[in-house]
């Protein structure tokens, strides 16, 4: 079978975002970040550097953090995408968000959605991280205000308070290429 190529003009793409099936009509060159923000109205993930160096666009794809600015939306068909918008339930904030408020884990707040998503993902994989593990897991998220000490404190505190409210996800293991 020869590959069927789509584009370069707009094509329909089916995405699963925060548990909902969404269809968008976009060019293959569109990044997941631009589709989330401009097509789906999910503006929590931020466009910072646009080149995978700042982490403001961090989302969770199939259970692992990724940069939405260096991911093509068309490559996300059939995969599960979670954004910062899925982290709280209405007015009820996630314990990581509560901890960021409690410990002042930000100044300007631009990087905060990405920081929170990275922290939530860390605690889902490792509910009791050491400080070194927190620093390592958060290393892909830059904060130009320099709120790092408070961010680390917030993540450690959220871990102490326990965040395991989603057992289906919190028990997830890291894919290690064992399949196929």
């Amino acid at each position: 079978m020869a590959i069927s190529f789509r584009g370069p003009g707009p094509i329909p793409i089916d995405l699963n975002v925060n548990g909902e099936e969404r269809t968008v009509f976009i060019e293959p060159r569109r990044t997941l970040l631009s589709v989330l923000r401009e097509e789906l109205g999910l503006t929590g993930a931020k466009h910072g550097c646009g080149r995978g160096q700042c982490g403001a666009c961090t989302v969770i794809i199939d259970g692992e953090t990724a940069y939405a600015c260096l991911t093509l939306a068309v490559d996300c068909e059939g995969r599960s995408i979670r954004t910062i918008e899925s982290v709280s339930h209405g007015e009820q904030l996630h314990p990581v968000q509560e901890a960021f408020i409690e410990h002042d884990g930000y100044q300007c707040g631009f990087c905060t959605p990405g920081q929170v998503v990275a922290a939530v993902s860390l605690l889902e994989h490792n509910p009791s991280p050491t400080e070194a593990e927190v620093r390592e897991a958060m290393a892909g998220n830059v904060c130009r205000c320099g709120a790092y000490p408070n961010i680390v404190t917030a993540v450690l505190d959220a871990a102490r308070q326990g965040t395991g409210r989603d057992p289906g996800v919190s028990g997830a293991t890291v894919a290690s290429g064992e399949e196929g």
Binding site: A2, I3, F5, G7, E27, R29, L72
Partner: peptide, 26 residues
């Protein structure tokens, strides 16, 4: 980013058939 078309390969053979100077693997 310049426009491009996109295709999903399901086998190495399929991918090889489609690759060329300006048709790149991703």
């Amino acid at each position: 980013m310049k426009p491009f078309s996109h295709g999903n390969a399901t086998s190495i053979e399929e991918a090889l058939e489609a690759l060329s100077g300006m048709s790149w693997p991703l």
